[in-house]
């Protein structure tokens, strides 16, 4: 069952266009969203969060259109981006205290669990965190309100290999609990480990949206890794 549907999403910038982007997110599955820098991953994700004004298309979550139902949908989804620093001079404790007032479903136990797992100290301020720790802090906020859908924009960027591996295990555990994850990245080895489906975007257009096995069968050559397929497709597209 598709829990999120993106249909014919268009966004026109002076130097870039998102062209009729369509793909679904399957319930309880991890979808890897791949594409090189500037391909349209972040624009698509921002559209999915109503952070940008689109020029066409429709986005539905749980069968409900995002337009007009933003508030109820955002209660049920979580978002995390790489290294953006929210309120750099406020303590993590203060940011959590305010954030949780917006979520009736806030899970104090989960919050404590991820604070411990990510080794975050609530007396610290985002400005005092390394880039990798900022990613973890953003993820902790997204994971602490029982989100049914997680939208993660390059969540592993800036993380050391051990932390990345730890995080991928967290995603797999969440998946077992029925959480749907969209995970944009250009580190394709992360997707080898945990993605069920692949959405591949290039030049503002979706080139493929399919289960990982089908993607490898349709686009890959024998013995190629996902990264090698991705690199070859990008090179072919440039020619």
């Amino acid at each position: 069952m598709n829990i999120v549907e993106i249909k014919d999403l268009c966004k026109i910038y002076p130097a870039f266009r998102l062209k009729n982007v369509s793909f679904p997110l399957e319930e309880g599955k991890i979808t890897g969203f791949i594409g090189r820098n500037g391909a349209g991953k972040t624009t698509t994700i921002k559209s999915m969060l109503n952070l940008i004004h689109t020029d066409g298309g429709e986005i539905t979550y749980f069968g409900i259109p995002l337009k007009g139902h933003e508030k109820e949908i955002k209660q049920r989804i979580g978002y995390s981006t790489g290294t953006v620093s929210w309120y750099p001079r406020k303590t993590i404790r203060e940011i959590i205290a305010v954030t949780k007032t917006f979520y009736p479903s806030w899970d104090e136990e989960a919050c404590k669990k991820y604070m411990t797992l990510f080794k975050l100290e609530d007396g610290k301020k985002p400005i005092e965190l390394s880039e990798g720790m900022k990613v973890k802090f953003n993820l902790m906020l997204a994971l602490s309100h029982r989100a049914e859908v997680l939208i993660l924009d390059e969540p592993t960027s800036g993380l050391d290999p051990f932390s990345r591996d730890e995080l991928l295990d967290v995603f797999l555990t969440l998946k077992e609990h029925g959480v749907t994850i969209l995970f944009s990245t250009h580190i394709t080895s992360d997707l080898e480990k945990c993605a069920d489906n692949i959405v591949y975007i290039s030049g503002g257009e979706i080139r493929a949206s399919s289960p990982k096995d089908a993607f490898m069968r349709d686009f890959g050559k024998p013995d190629e890794t996902l990264e090698e397929v991705f690199l070859r497709l990008e090179k072919e597209a440039r020619v």
């Binding site: 952070l51 933003e70 508030k71 620093s85 929210w86």
Partner: peptide
Amino acid sequence: EANDLVYSALLPVAKRD
């Protein structure tokens, strides 16, 4: 400077809130 508008827009509120 603290990315307040984006943070607020990501909260479960309508943009007008």
